[in-house]
Computed example of a mutant assay.
Amino acid sequence: MRLNEWLRLIAGVFVLGAVLLGATVHPYYNYFAAFVAANLIQSSFSGWCPMMALLRRLGVQE
């Protein structure tokens, strides 16, 4: 997998996990889902995403 596929996979797992935890454990987990969504929105405008920087450091191919 390449960088964009990894990013989509990680974001999807984080959001799905947060929504499931928010529905079963505590509603405050939904704030984590909102944080991930806000980060995706800001990265679409700025072109910079912290997870992409981390994945690049880990050697994921672009």
Rank of each mutant, 00 (worst) to 15 (best):
M1G: 13
R2H: 07
R2P: 10
L3A: 03
N4I: 08
N4L: 08
N4K: 15
E5C: 06
W6V: 09
W6H: 13
L7P: 00
R8E: 15
R8M: 10
R8H: 11
L9K: 15
L9G: 06
I10G: 01
I10M: 12
A11W: 03
A11D: 14
A11N: 14
G12K: 14
G12F: 05
V13R: 14
V13F: 14
V13G: 04
V13H: 11
V13Y: 11
F14I: 08
F14T: 07
G17D: 15
G17N: 15
V19F: 06
V19R: 10
V19Q: 05
L20S: 11
L20E: 09
L21R: 15
L21I: 02
L21Y: 04
L21D: 07
L21Q: 10
G22E: 07
A23S: 14
A23C: 11
A23W: 12
T24G: 04
T24K: 13
V25I: 15
V25G: 01
H26Y: 12
P27D: 05
P27F: 10
P27L: 04
Y28I: 09
Y28C: 01
Y28S: 08
N30K: 04
N30T: 08
N30H: 15
Y31E: 11
Y31D: 10
F32I: 12
F32D: 00
A33P: 01
A33Y: 03
A33V: 03
A34K: 05
A34M: 11
F35R: 07
F35Q: 05
F35D: 11
V36W: 02
V36P: 01
V36M: 13
A38S: 13
N39A: 12
N39I: 04
L40H: 00
I41H: 00
I41Y: 05
Q42W: 07
Q42K: 13
Q42A: 12
S43N: 08
S43G: 01
S44M: 09
S44E: 10
S44C: 03
F45K: 06
F45P: 00
F45H: 05
F45L: 14
F45T: 07
F45C: 03
S46M: 06
S46V: 07
S46L: 14
G47C: 05
W48V: 12
C49H: 14
P50M: 07
P50Q: 05
P50T: 03
M51P: 00
M52Q: 15
M52N: 07
M52S: 14
L54S: 09
L55Y: 04
L55S: 02
R56L: 10
R56Y: 01
R56C: 02
R57Y: 05
R57G: 15
R57L: 13
L58M: 14
G59M: 04
V60E: 01
V60K: 05
Q61M: 07
Q61D: 08
Q61L: 10
Q61G: 08
E62C: 07
E62I: 12
